[in-house]
Every structure is written in structure tokens, then in C-alpha cells.
């Protein structure tokens, strides 16, 4: 077994994104949903690093990766803030309880 490093990184990207999406599809807990989003975006960051390595343009890739991290943090903060409010007003973090808007 002598896997090239880019391949390992690719595997990491795929497993991060895969785990994230799996979680989004099956979890009923709002906090876990936010965590799942984080996982996916971590996959994105790795993907940028990998892409930068492949095309020998690491500086641009790093810029983009850092920007993504910043934006992603903001989203996570807002998501968690909303989760807090939801817990306060509905007393639950269950997605099932959060499906009153339908049809």
C-alpha cells in the first residue's frame, strides 16, 4: 500500500462531505445539522488545498480556503444562534417539531 498523498486527501474530502451529507439526511437534531454543515465545509477547505496543490497555485488556494473558513464560521454562529432561539421558543431541537411549515 503506497497511496499518493493527493489521493489520500481526496479520500478525506469525500469522506468528510459524505459524512456531512449522510448526517444531514438522517439526523433529527438541529445541532448535529449545524455540525454536519461544518463537516461538509471542512471538506471544501481540503478540496481547495488539494486543487491548489494539483495546479501548483497554492497561494490562491490558501486565500480561498481561509475566506471559506471565515464565512463558514459566521454561518455556524448564526445557525447556532437560531438554534438557541428555537430551543427557547419551541422547547425542542428536533427537526420533526420544526416541520410546521409545509404544503
Amino acid at each position: 500500500m503506497n497511496l499518493p498523498i493527493p489521493f489520500i486527501v481526496l479520500l478525506a474530502v469525500l469522506s468528510l462531505a459524505g459524512t456531512g451529507f449522510y448526517c444531514l439526511l438522517f439526523t433529527r437534531n438541529l445541532i448535529k445539522v449545524v455540525v454536519a454543515l461544518q463537516l461538509i465545509v471542512k471538506g471544501v477547505v481540503l478540496a481547495f488545498v488539494l486543487a491548489g496543490h494539483l495546479v501548483q497555485n497554492e497561494s490562491l488556494a490558501q486565500t480561498m480556503a481561509i475566506t471559506v473558513i471565515v464565512a463558514d464560521t459566521i454561518v455556524a454562529v448564526i445557525g447556532l444562534a437560531l438554534a438557541v432561539q428555537i430551543r427557547l421558543h419551541t422547547g425542542s431541537l428536533d427537526l420533526k417539531a420544526l416541520s410546521n411549515l409545509k404544503r
Binding site: 462531505a17 444531514l24 438541529l30 445539522v33 449545524v34 454543515l37 461538509i40 465545509v41 471538506g43 471544501v44 478540496a47 481547495f48 488539494l50 486543487a51 491548489g52 495546479v55 497555485n57 490562491l60 488556494a61 480561498m64 471559506v68 454561518v75 448564526i78 445557525g79 437560531l82 438554534a83 432561539q85 428555537i86 421558543h89 419551541t90 420544526l98 416541520s99 410546521n100 411549515l101
Partner: peptide, 29 residues
């Protein structure tokens, strides 16, 4: 609670979309 529910759904789905865009950009890059 209705507007909170709408807000969190919007946030999650929009972020997924945004992540997909980023994967796409990474692929093109």
C-alpha cells in the same frame, strides 16, 4: 417559531448550496 423555522431551513439549505458551489469551484480550479 414559524419565522425561526423558516430561517433555519433557509440557512441550512442555502449553506448546502453554497458548499456545492465551493466544491464546483474547487473542481474547476
Amino acid at each position: 417559531s414559524a419565522s425561526l423555522e423558516a430561517g433555519i431551513k433557509y440557512l441550512v439549505q442555502s449553506s448546502i448550496g453554497s458548499a456545492l458551489v465551493l466544491f464546483g469551484i474547487a473542481a474547476i480550479f
